[in-house]
Design a binder for these strands. Structure first.
Lengths: 334, 334
DNA sequence: GGGGATACTGGAACCGTTTCCACGACTAAG
DNA sequence: CTTAGTCGTGGAAACGGTTCCAGTATCCCC
């Protein structure tokens, strides 16, 4: 494999000069730089990242910790993140912690240790002891699509999003509103999106409606689970006239159950989700949209800022907005 | 930062021995190994991957080239791949080539060069000159979720999948069958999933049906595009009674247009997709299922095999199967 | 008890850069 | 025409391991 010494020799300079020329340092005569660059091109030379980093210190690599690779939400986050980090010539290392076992081993072994300059955690809460492990890595930590207490984050305000959704249903005149909340099947016991639940209770209370525990069900994330949750709601003595789901996939599952039961959406039951999944538009689902890809991209910028030593916002909260489509409407007059 | 010399000193051995003990080499006395391991644990020592690789040669890193991060198909592929590669303690470097510009720059700059031991290309065709660039990296190349000529791959047979879909429609009695094919909006000019188109033409020909060019439309991938394509089909003098879409998302878009036009699925028009997207079940879409996550996982095993020097299958083709749901049925008797 | 093989261990070269320090050549100021 | 600075360049010391080679101690067997 051709190395920098070869390039230096061909260009007729010392390695020190070759190194400076190649990494764009000042104090290199333009003519010399050109000679080195030509030599490098001729030999099809690329610096060895290993060697370069051994000597230099930085890795130009960022770890991304993601709980679900095949969900749209995380894919979009990753997409945004990747786009700005690639622009800055950083490499992305993916660490997938799908279930409790993955999670345990990730935080115990810290496989990213010494391999990256920063860690971005995607939409995933983290416990105190885990945080401490993470800090052992001694690198910057950023959260995207969620918040982790003391670190900078880019996220939406789940409380606001939830209220937008529930308020819409209230505004339409619904009084019996159910909620399908989700927990993460792979990470039992993790309070996922607690703000979305609090928003529900708060909005109902503000509207002077009684809290009916039967109307709030919690299921694992996913369309199938949403369908089952809806079946449960339909089996109540007095089913809801509207359903607020924590995410669009869950909402779609609920809709399917409603239709199978011979009821119509929104005439018999209204359904609203959160996210604005690409398929929400196709399925005519009313939802609260959040800018997912942008959250990822912004998180990338935060990382870059941190790396360059600039002071950074402690947190960026992005706006969500209600997108009214065909799955919500006024309740039937009883 | 604590380094191996510190560990060696604390354990009272030479660096050579420390290195061997830490990397599980033979010819280290058990007692010595234990002392070294204890010392390492006490100092919370981790080897520097940079140094280790500089000296050792391998990087234990695999590059993944993926055209779309936020599509379910690629996410699932990635998921499977990651799961087996993580098991083997490999790190995954993500390279997203979303559009023509990304693509150009990726193959020109070869940013993964010298950084990885292998490259996995996910569901993406590659041109001859690009292949040559890739080979300059001098590492193993594997394709998953698609094929790239001379390299090992893990994929389905698009021709078979397509025929399963079209045959189902034929079996139901349809004679006027449309196809919505897709191309990649980010990669203009790329023949995507050509097998799925060939299957369509072949199946119709086998059934003795005339080829009507109006019935085969090609649009960019996505639900919205599927919706538009369907509109086009509905504007024909004699619209199809069944539609074969190259992917589920596209099929869902088509269904939406059909419904908006006041027609019913499957009574008026049947729709079939390919993939078995998680939402296909929720939306009651008939489709041809393919094991996406498994393709990724298998590709991971192929990479591992290649890395260990074992001879590998030139290609693995996985089975697809028709999943009949509610979006297909016999045509109305005219 | 002697000889050869075997199990451990240490010394030191090497992997390919980056960067500190020193040095000569010019330039601009006095 | 000195003198203090710049600018451009080279020498060489890290950076943190891996591994070849060689040396010593131990072991087995005849």
């Amino acid at each position: 494999m051709v190395n920098m010494a070869d390039v230096a020799r061909l260009a007729g300079v010392s390695m020190a000069t070759a190194s400076r020329a190649l990494s764009d340092h000042p104090h290199v005569a333009p003519a010399t730089r050109a000679r080195v660059l030509d030599a490098a091109a001729e030999l099809a030379y690329v610096v060895s990242p290993e060697a370069s980093r051994l000597a230099g210190g930085v890795t130009d690599r960022i770890a991304v910790v993601v709980p679900h690779l095949s969900r749209w939400f995380f894919g979009a986050l990753l997409d945004g993140l990747e786009s700005v980090l690639r622009e800055a010539d950083k490499d992305l290392l993916i660490y997938h912690v799908g279930d409790a076992a993955d999670r345990k081993s990730f935080f115990e072994r810290l496989p990213a240790r010494r391999k990256v300059d920063a860690v971005v955690v995607l939409g995933m809460p983290i416990a105190r002891p885990e945080r401490e492990r993470l800090e052992m890595m001694g690198v910057h930590i950023v959260a995207a699509g969620g918040q982790i207490e003391p670190y900078p984050f880019v996220s939406i305000d789940d409380m606001v999003a939830g209220r937008q959704a529930v308020n819409h249903l209230l505004f339409l005149g619904h009084r019996r509103i159910a909620m399908i909340a989700t927990n993460d099947p792979g990470q039992p016991g993790w309070p996922i999106r607690a703000g979305r639940s609090r928003a529900y209770h708060a909005a109902l209370a503000d509207a002077g409606l009684p809290a009916d525990p039967d109307l709030a069900v919690t299921v694992p994330w996913g369309g199938a689970a949403g369908a089952e949750a809806m079946a449960e709601l339909l089996s109540l003595r007095e089913p809801p006239t509207a359903v607020y789901a924590h995410s669009d996939e869950v909402a779609l599952g609920a809709i399917r159950t409603i239709r199978r039961a011979g009821l119509r959406v929104p005439e018999d039951i209204s359904v609203i989700g959160i996210d604005d999944h690409p398929l929400a538009e196709l399925t005519d689902l009313t939802t609260v949209a959040q800018p997912v890809r942008d959250q990822g991209a912004l998180a990338g910028q935060v990382v870059l800022g941190l790396l360059s030593g600039a002071a950074t916002d402690p947190g960026i909260t992005m706006a969500t907005r209600l997108v009214v489509r065909g799955s919500t409407g006024p309740p039937r007059v009883a």
